[in-house]
């Protein structure tokens, strides 16, 4: 897993609420046996018409989309299916961070496991970000802080909370499996207990 410490870049806003994992990666792309290249199909039904041609007006088809590492989605991002293909598709598309005012449980833990940083901000901060499409912000996992520049040029710092173990692993690019693996004695003891 790639480590994540701090990133500055433009945001891409998808304002819609309840963006479910079927939108992020439609089920017909789930017949794969590895995640290579899955980013090409991210938001396929939003980006392409029935013939597979890119829909011109869509923000995800603008040249900037591939260079915007921070996705800001509407409330309750990532709801629905448990498919880990969803965070993989976002990573493959070029996102490293997803920000929303609520992120669904399974999507969030899948993101932790594959190295996509999920950030939950409060409703007011989130609402401000939804109005800042294309602007540059900084996401600092070390400080658990999002830095934005207001229209008057003043810097604003917003603190966020994240599961401490997820933060620990993301900062160092650690595979969570290794932690589980170190617990072998405890697992054996549990299995032997009546």
């Amino acid at each position: 897993m790639r480590a994540f410490t701090k990133l500055t870049g433009p945001i891409l806003v998808l304002e819609q609420e309840n963006i479910d994992t079927d939108q992020i990666i439609p089920a017909r792309y789930l017949t794969v046996t590895n995640f290579d290249g899955i980013g090409e199909h991210a938001f396929a039904d939003w980006r392409f018409d029935a013939n597979g041609d890119p829909l011109p007006g869509h923000v995800l088809n603008e040249p900037r989309a591939g260079h915007s590492p921070i996705l800001v989605g509407g409330h309750n991002f990532g709801c629905g299916s448990s498919r880990e293909h969803a965070p993989h598709a976002l990573l493959g598309f070029g996102f490293r961070v997803v920000i929303s005012s609520q992120i669904a449980d399974i999507f969030r833990s899948n993101s932790h496991n594959v190295g996509l940083l999920p950030v939950v901000l409060d409703a007011t901060q989130h609402a401000s970000l939804l109005q800042m499409d294309g602007e540059e912000i900084t996401v600092d996992l070390e400080q658990c802080r999002v830095t934005v520049r207001a229209t008057d040029g003043a810097e604003q710092n917003w603190a966020f909370t994240i599961d401490p173990f997820a933060r620990h692993c993301l900062l160092r690019g650690l595979d969570r499996f290794d932690f589980l693996n170190q617990a072998e004695d405890a697992i054996e003891a549990y299995e032997k207990s009546p």
Binding site: E84, N110, A183, E191
Partner: peptide, 18 residues
């Protein structure tokens, strides 16, 4: 409850989840 594929690997290997 439902889990992701990385966790499927964890359970296959260790019969446990974080």
């Amino acid at each position: 409850f439902g889990i992701g594929t990385t966790e499927v690997g964890h359970v296959l290997a260790k019969q446990c989840l974080l």
